[in-house]
Every structure is written in C-alpha cells, then in structure tokens.
C-alpha cells in the first residue's frame, strides 16, 4: 500500500499542473506584437514575452501593478506583483530607454480577472537588460533658421499693416 501511494504521488508530480509551469516553460521568446497576434487557440496558455518597459508601473485593481512592454511598436499590458515592478530601474520615455524585461505567464485575450483586458499575468519575471539615458542631438541650425523666420515673419506682418493703412493695393 505504501509503495502504491508513493507511486501515485510520483505520477501526480509528473502530470499535474503546478505553479512551476511557468518556471519550466521553455517556449520561444515572443515580442509584444507577436503576443497580440497570437493564435486564439493559445488563449490562456503560457508564453514568454520580452519587451521594453515604458512609462511607469501603474496600480492594478485588486492588487499588483501593470507594466506595459513595448516591442515592434506594439504595447502589451503585463500584470506583475509589486516586488517584480520594483525591480525595474528605467521605464522608456523621451529621456530613457527602458529596461528590457522578460516575462513568462499565461496570456489572456480577454482577461476574466481584469475586465476583458488583453494581458499576460507574470509568473516569472527577469530584467534582461537595464535601460539607459537617451541622448538627443541638438541641432543649432534649426534655431538659427527658426529665429530668422520669426523675425522675417514679424517684418512681413508689419509690412502688411503699413500697406493696409496706406491701401497700397
């Protein structure tokens, strides 16, 4: 009997779904754009998605945070725990390239927990690359042309006023 119980326990450990599902997942790493276009038959299945964290992390209803990942110019909402969100150093914006984040978890085309959102619930979370400060090249010539244009425009406006007063046309 004892041997039978051990045998059952072993079988269950192999076949039963467990929280380790995401940890054991070794599927391809998808971009947010690929996840959004995923075959709908895979709704609810575990995926790994990698993208740049942008904006900021936002409070989620019912606990946890939302992190939006960007890839191939498509954004994807990922639900993460508070601890996961705190690991992100940079979020992408005008001044920063955001951290590249890799998340593994179930994808939901219409999440029943989050009011029909298209989302991924992160079971596993890792920072693949830390972001950086973005540099923007300043082109002084734009300013020179602009200021010249403003001055010329002002003079032309004054010219119009004078011509109008004198009814030159």
């Amino acid at each position: 009997m004892k041997r039978l119980m051990w045998g059952l326990a072993l079988v269950l450990a192999i076949v039963a779904p467990s929280p380790a599902t995401a940890a054991a997942f070794t599927g391809p790493v998808l971009s947010p754009a690929e996840v959004v276009e995923i075959d709908r038959s895979r709704d609810g299945s575990v995926v790994t998605v990698e993208g740049e964290a942008v904006g900021e992390h936002l409070r989620a209803v019912g606990g946890g945070r939302w992190v939006n990942l960007l890839g191939d110019d498509v954004g994807l909402g990922v639900w993460v725990t508070d601890e996961m969100a705190e690991q992100i150093t940079y979020f992408g914006d005008y001044r920063h390239d955001g951290d590249i984040v890799r998340v593994t978890g179930p994808v939901n085309v219409a999440c029943a927990v989050h009011g029909g959102e298209f989302d991924v619930h992160a079971d596993r979370f890792e920072i693949v690359a830390v972001g950086a400060v973005r540099e923007h090249e300043i082109e002084p010539m734009k300013g020179v042309v602009g200021v010249t244009g403003i001055v010329v425009g002002f003079l032309l406006w004054r010219l119009y006023g004078r011509r109008r007063d004198r009814r030159m046309i």
Binding site: Y94, H136, E137, I138, E139, P140, K142, G143, V145, G146, V147, T148, G149, I150, V152, G153, F154, L155, L156, W157, L159, Y160, R163
Partner: peptide, 24 residues
C-alpha cells in the same frame, strides 16, 4: 527638451514667414 524645443522654433519661423508672406 532643448532638441524638441528647437523643432518648434523652426516650425514657428516657417509658419510665420510663409503665413505673413501670404497675408500680404
């Protein structure tokens, strides 16, 4: 955002010059 601000200086220059020319 100096780089972006310069884009608006440029835009103002083009818009005001072209506009004032047409106004005449």
């Amino acid at each position: 955002e100096p780089a972006a601000a310069l884009d608006y200086l440029l835009g103002m220059g083009v818009a005001l010059t072209t506009g004032a020319l047409l106004v005449n």
